[in-house]
């Protein structure tokens, strides 16, 4: 799959950072605003897919390997389960929110009606893990399909 015209590449390059920052914002504020790891990860993955389509899978294959994507997805999954298992260790039950109410990062409890990013306990950590997993997973699916198409075009 070759890249598209210079117009498409330029527009994709301009809009890419905004899409990625918006997706990361949705992930980071998952415990405060609508959205979360799944939704923000899908936004970031769609931005990456935009770049992939605009620049072509040959160019993308020189920048990133599919092995890295599967590694990132595994890191996300293992992080998610690790936080859940730490709930057994410190809170007594699986998925226990052991951070909230302590002095650790994200340990605060919000005042009524006020939003504070330093709250939520394990929720932001799980949002980050799931976001990483969704970014790598969804982009990995698109990337591998694009690579398969380009290989098929070469052999045809």
């Amino acid at each position: 799959m070759n890249g598209m015209t210079k117009i498409v590449k330029t527009i994709a390059g301009i809009s890419f950072p905004f899409i990625v920052i918006y997706g990361l914002y949705v992930i980071a504020h998952g415990h405060l605003t609508p959205g979360g790891g799944f939704q923000g990860g899908a936004v970031v993955a769609s931005g990456l897919a935009l770049i992939l389509v605009a620049y072509g899978s040959k160019w993308a294959a020189t920048k990133i390997k599919e092995h890295d994507l599967s590694l990132l997805e595994s890191v996300g999954a293992i992080g998610f389960i690790t936080v859940a298992f730490f709930g057994i260790l410190f809170g007594g039950v699986f998925f226990s929110n052991f951070i909230v109410g302590t002095d650790l990062l994200f340990g605060g409890i919000p005042l009524a009606g006020a939003a504070d990013i330093n709250t939520g306990g394990t929720l932001p950590l799980m949002n980050f893990a799931v976001g990483l997993k969704v970014i790598a997973g969804l982009f990995g699916i698109v990337f591998i399909m694009a690579l398969a198409i380009s290989k098929k075009e070469e052999s045809a």
Partner: peptide
Amino acid sequence: TGANNGVTSVVFDYRGFDTLGEATVLF
């Protein structure tokens, strides 16, 4: 849960097993 967003607190805390299954489906 210390979260302003009640939906996220349900998805990641009260019903964390559901999210674990969802992540497994994606995997």
